[in-house]
Structures are given as structure tokens and as C-alpha cells.
Amino acid sequence: MSKAVKVGFGLAVFAVAITAINLRAGVSSLAPVIGQVAESFGVSSSTAGILTSLPGFCFAIMGWLAVPIARRLGLSPTLVAGSVALLVGLAIRPFIDSYLPFFVLTVVLVAGIAVANILLPAWVKEHSRGTNQVRLMMTYTAMLGASGAIGPLSALFFSGSSAWRWALGVWVVPVIVQTIVWAIVLSKTKRDIPSTGVMPDPDELAEASPKANSNPGGSLLKSPTAIAMLLFFGIQSAGAYAQMGWLPAILVEDGVRESTASIALALLGGFNVIGGVLMPWLLSRLNSVVPLPIILGAITT
């Protein structure tokens, strides 16, 4: 039996949009100023570059932790906690003068991003139905792409020795809004434990999929389908964050101005907006989605 929708559609749209717009900006805004950060802290480019690998690691860790936490605390409370982590990381990081605490705060904010990235689609499925659910998912994917597109642009508006601090710190403003909105959402949803099917336990998935796992009740690591999806999404994420983290630095090293490099990364993110809008429409008209990852993978290669 599905639960009644407790959040009005307007509030849901705003909550999803403001959250999605913050899911890439905290990461993509760092790439154009990574050289300035390294110079400010007196570390090598390779040491500073470790920061660009954090999203992948945090997504992997939070992929295992976010679901059990949400099943215990509820989707909305966990999303509030993720928003607070993102807020703390973004608010304090610009005032740091050494690399190690900057690194730790980056881990904190990326963990907050990872929580929202993993749980927001589940929240949409839990708190919307039918056409509204499709609209919310389209909002999510489009704003997610927009986040990657606008994040690098903050580097264009500041100059001087503290430019990187402003370029990173400005993104705390929409995160403040995000935190307030989710506090309002939480007042309506309370402890919204996800329904069965919205976010099943891994063991439940293994038991329910004998075709994918010949040993019911066994680990998903024994499922060829699960392993294939793990590799597919891992490779896709690695490519995306490599571009997001290093494209501006590569261009600058080849003699391109930092402002132009920032625009190039923003343009790359803009294509994600187009994909986010078109893909749900395309998927609804296909009998099989199998050709899509093959075609897109070939194009990427």
C-alpha cells in the first residue's frame, strides 16, 4: 500500500530543483581555481588534485551507507543532514589557510552531495505519483546538469589573491536556501521511512532476482547484472569527474586563459541539461534501453 503524498507539488519542485542545483557546483567550481588553491596552500598540483578524486570515493562509500541510514532515520531527515554537511563544508572552507583542514571540509561537503545525489530520486518516488513524478525527475536531471554548467562560472567574477575563496564561497548561498527548504519539507514528512520497492535492501534485491543471482539470498557481488551496472556507472562517473576536475587545468596548461577554460567546462555541463530534459522523453518511447548505453559509450570513446 503506497503512502499518501504529504508534500505539495510546488514545494516538491522547489526542493528538488534547489537541491539538484547544488549537487555539482561545489565540485565543478573548484576545477577552474585548483591551481590557485595549490599555490595558496603551497602544495603540488598532484596533491591538490587529490581533491578532484574525492567525489568518486565519497559516492562509493555513501552508496553503501546512505540507504541503511535512510531506512532507519527516514529520507527527509537524512537529506536534511546531507544539506547541513554541505553547508558546513562550503561555509568554512573559504576561510581555511592550510591544506589538511581544507581537504577534510571538502570530504564533508562532498559527502553531503553524495547523500542527496543518492537519496533524492528515492524521495521523489516516495512523495510523488504519476505525471508529477516524471516532472520531478526531469527537474532533477535538468538542474543537475545546470549545476555542473554554472559551477565553473563563479571563477569569472572574482580576481586577486583571494579570488578562489570567493569563487568557492559564493555557493554557500543556494545551500542555505536548500537547508531551509528541507527543514520545511521535514516538518511535513516527519520520519518518512521509504516504502518497500522505493529503496529495497540489497538482500531483498538479491532474493527477488533469481535470474540475476542463482543463489537467492546471496551477495549482489555474485550477480552478473549488479557487477555490470557497478562497472558501467563507475566508469561513467570516473569519466565525468575527470572532465569536471581536470579539463580547466589541462586547457590552462595548453595556454588557454582561465576564464575561457571555465566557460569550456560550463559548456560541457550545458550538454547535461539537454540530456536531462531529452532522456526521460526518449526512454518513455523506447521498447528497449539496451542500445542507448552502447551508442553513448561508443560516442564517448
Rank of each mutant, 00 (worst) to 15 (best):
S2G: 14
V7I: 14
T19M: 12
A25S: 14
A31H: 07
G35S: 09
Q36H: 11
T52R: 02
A66G: 01
I69F: 08
L73I: 09
G74Y: 01
L75Y: 03
S76V: 06
L87S: 06
V88D: 05
I92M: 10
R93D: 11
V108T: 14
V110L: 15
N117P: 06
L120K: 04
L120F: 07
A122I: 07
K125F: 09
K125H: 14
T131L: 13
M143E: 02
S147Q: 05
G148M: 08
G151P: 00
P152K: 03
P152W: 03
A155D: 01
W164M: 10
W166K: 13
V170I: 15
V170F: 03
V173K: 00
V173E: 02
V175E: 00
V181Y: 00
W182E: 02
V185H: 00
K190M: 12
R191S: 14
I193E: 02
S195I: 06
V198H: 05
L205C: 10
A208C: 11
S209W: 13
K211N: 14
S219C: 04
S219V: 04
K222M: 14
A238S: 14
A242H: 14
G245M: 01
I250T: 13
L251H: 05
T260Y: 05
V273W: 05
V273Y: 06
P280W: 02
L286Y: 01
V290M: 11
P293V: 03
I294K: 06
G297D: 01
